[in-house]
Nucleic acid binder design. Structure first.
Length: 475
RNA sequence: GUCCCCAUCGUCUAGCGGUCUAGGACAUCACCCUUUCACGGUGAAGACCGGGGUUCGAGUCCCCGUGGGGACGCCA
């Protein structure tokens, strides 16, 4: 029996969960779920200066919203420093690492020199073979890996293929800082090993780290996890994602009204494909996802496609789910509290009644809420510019007459009101649109809305007639 | 600068030597449907970065160039 698959998502809590991190989490989650494995969560909070509680909360909240649930307890890397130190000491004792007494100034000089000479190896290894007895007394030291000087280090990457580095280009990097805290490079290896991680899936900005970490695994004699470095996501203009375009926290996407399912679907197709399939249910995604199908070139973030996918999920979601999604979204909206207060039980059932018509034309929950707002907007109804333009004196005259025709309609159903309006238009010798648009403006305050007869039905006889009379008499 | 990675329509991508006069999706543009807006339907326009090889045959393999990206910290 082979070992169970264990993946992990390991964000550093120095900011929100951005779109790239969300996709990395999704890939890890899909890979584990599809193979009966586990996805672990490890918060890489060893940078005490920059790690914040707020960032941790944002990451957890973001994963939760996306529906990417991890297995087991969340591991906080900082809590494991003693273990990291233990391994560093062990490597020192075994001669796999050594003490380096260089000062920051010396290091800065070395770096400059190396750059000037066009060398990749920044540290010159000056303490590599020196006897510790030569160390200046009381001088703090860092522990560096005694990396191989020749030969090559290879990462057999599932997405990048076989990637090779000449060891002469890799220097003796620091494992344990002079203040006794572990570096990221050491901590990751020790934690992944201790957490029995079998597959590392992360952004390809870590590809070079993959080589360094491989050297640590080799020094320790540990099994190297299968690595997959996925390409980064770029902004619409091809540049690195910045706050100007796509680098928003996932909470921003929630606030824009995207459904988590749409988000997952959009994200999974960024860099990964399964033939010509564009739409994937979560189950399909889990079943089809695999590492070799991930592309190696960076993808650009495209709101238009996200939007389109979002519309698809809006249309295909059950009505009640969408209402629940609105409830979930309201707390995250600026005017959410005001709207929430208006959603009384009767209003909610009106929304539900209108939902089949509403969801057909909304791309996001925000649009859905906006399109539904005519239901709870009280009289006198505010008119937007287009609606105002529609309500010419002639149009108001039409409304007056149609209202009279409508007053006798019984029962108040879409078919019956349509009957009445159509026959009115016929006797007037005008097209249905000529009377439907003014009705729409008077009823919803907008120039666009669901089908006008459904609007009449959702609003009910009393409210409909009242809104019509408001506009018939006004001028 | 050095190291590493990448390169098919505007965008996401299919393509794993011949079935490619290169397929799908989003976006765009027509037309149809139609009470508005969407949806839906039909159709159009739109790509293999350049140059060398290898091969009977290259979008597919190799090399060089060019262009992107990433990494070069006692950050993660």
């Amino acid at each position: 029996m082979t070992d169970p698959i264990v993946t992990r998502f390991a964000p550093s809590p120095t900011g929100f969960l951005h779109i790239g991190g969300a996709r990395t989490a999704l890939f890890n989650w899909l890979y584990a779920r599809g193979r009966g494995g586990k996805m672990l969560l490890r918060i890489e909070d060893t940078d005490r200066e920059r790690s914040t509680k707020a960032a941790i909360d944002a990451i957890l909240d973001g994963l939760d919203w996306l529906g990417l649930h991890w297995d087991g307890e969340t591991v906080y890397q900082f809590s494991r420093v003693a273990r990291h130190r233990e391994i560093a000491e062990r490597m020192l004792a075994e001669g796999k690492a050594y003490r380096c007494f260089c000062t920051p100034e010396e290091l800065a000089q070395m770096r400059e020199k190396a750059k000037a000479e066009g060398k990749t190896r920044l540290y010159d290894g000056r303490w590599r073979d020196r006897d510790p007895s030569e160390a200046p007394a009381g001088q703090p030291y860092a522990i560096r890996l005694k990396a191989p000087l020749s030969g090559e280090t290879v990462v057999e990457d599932q997405v990048q293929g076989r990637v090779t580095w000449q060891n002469e280009n890799l220097d003796d990097f620091v494992l344990l800082r002079s203040d006794g805290t572990p570096t990221y490079m050491l901590a990751v290896v020790v934690d992944d090993h201790d957490m029995a991680v079998t597959h590392i899936i992360r952004g390809d900005d870590h590809l070079n780290n993959g080589a360094r970490q491989t050297q640590i695994y080799q020094a320790l004699g540990w099994t190297i996890p299968v690595m997959s470095h996925i390409p980064l996501i770029h902004g619409p203009d091809g540049s690195k994602l910045s706050k100007r375009h796509g680098a928003l926290g996932v909470d921003a996407y929630r606030a824009m009204g995207y459904l988590p399912a749409a988000m997952r679907n959009y994200l999974v197709r960024l860099g990964w494909s399964h033939g010509d399939q564009e739409v994937f249910s979560t189950e399909e995604m889990i079943a089809a996802f695999d590492l070799p199908q991930i592309g190696r070139s960076p993808a650009r973030f495209d709101f238009a496609k996200l939007e389109s996918l979002s519309g698809h999920y809006m249309r295909t979601s059950p009505d009640a789910d969408l209402l629940a999604a609105i409830d979930g979204l309201l707390p995250h909206l600026a005017n959410g509290t005001d709207i929430a207060a208006k959603l009384t039980p009767p209003i909610r059932s009106q929304i539900l009644a209108a939902m089949p018509d509403l969801k057909e034309r909304a791309k996001t929950l925000v649009e859905l809420i906006d399109a539904a707002s005519f239901i709870w907007s009280g009289r006198p109804l505010a008119l937007d510019d287009k609606a105002t333009a529609l309500l010419t004196p002639e149009a108001r005259g039409l409304i007056r007459e149609v209202t009279q025709a409508l007053e006798t309609v019984e029962p108040w159903t879409p078919a019956a009101t349509e009957q009445a309006v159509r026959s009115y238009a016929e006797t007037k010798g005008t097209k249905l649109g000529t009377v439907a648009q003014p009705l729409r403006a008077a009823l919803t305050g907008r120039a666009t809305s669901p089908g006008i007869f459904n609007v009449l039905t959702v609003l009910g006889r009393q409210e409909s007639l009242a809104r019509l009379r408001d506009q018939a008499s006004a001028s």
